[in-house]
């Protein structure tokens, strides 16, 4: 079992990772961040992506889809942004956010690793 810090460290080790954050989308605040720096303000990303997650959750409710979001992929010109919603008991309302360099990242591998990080995470 990994805590928040370990999980973020593992996320930062994903090939091509630029930054990662564990975000509470009920408040839009990050529980923890790693990497990012000047080029990517992770607190801005946490707040902004909270709106993305909330919009999708609401859309699914309105469509009457009785399902849940596993992850959301946003493809930019030079980056991939992956949002993985956490499902475990005690971590509902949280998502893991990772920004990846498109040239260095392997998307399938990144999703697989994120799934593993989620499974190990205990909050």
């Amino acid at each position: 079992m990994a805590n928040t810090e370990t999980a973020l460290k593992e996320a930062a080790q994903i090939e091509g990772a630029i930054g990662a954050a564990l975000v509470d989308y009920t408040s839009g605040m990050a529980l923890g961040t790693i990497g990012g720096g000047k080029e990517l303000d992770l607190n801005v990303a946490a707040a902004g992506n909270t709106d993305v997650v909330r919009a999708k959750v609401r859309t699914m409710e309105m469509l009457g889809l009785n399902d849940e979001i596993e992850d959301i992929l946003i493809t930019l010109g030079g980056q991939y942004h992956l949002l993985r919603l956490l499902k475990a008991r005690g971590s509902a309302g949280l998502f893991l956010y990772v920004a990846l360099d498109k040239n260095r990242a392997n998307l399938a591998m990144a999703r697989h690793q994120l799934k593993k990080i989620e499974a190990d995470l205990e909050i």
């Binding site: 408040s27 839009g28 605040m29 607190n43 801005v44 707040a47």
Partner: peptide
């Protein structure tokens, strides 16, 4: 409200 955004 998204408190993160509120602060920003």
């Amino acid at each position: 409200i998204n408190v993160g955004r509120l602060h920003l």
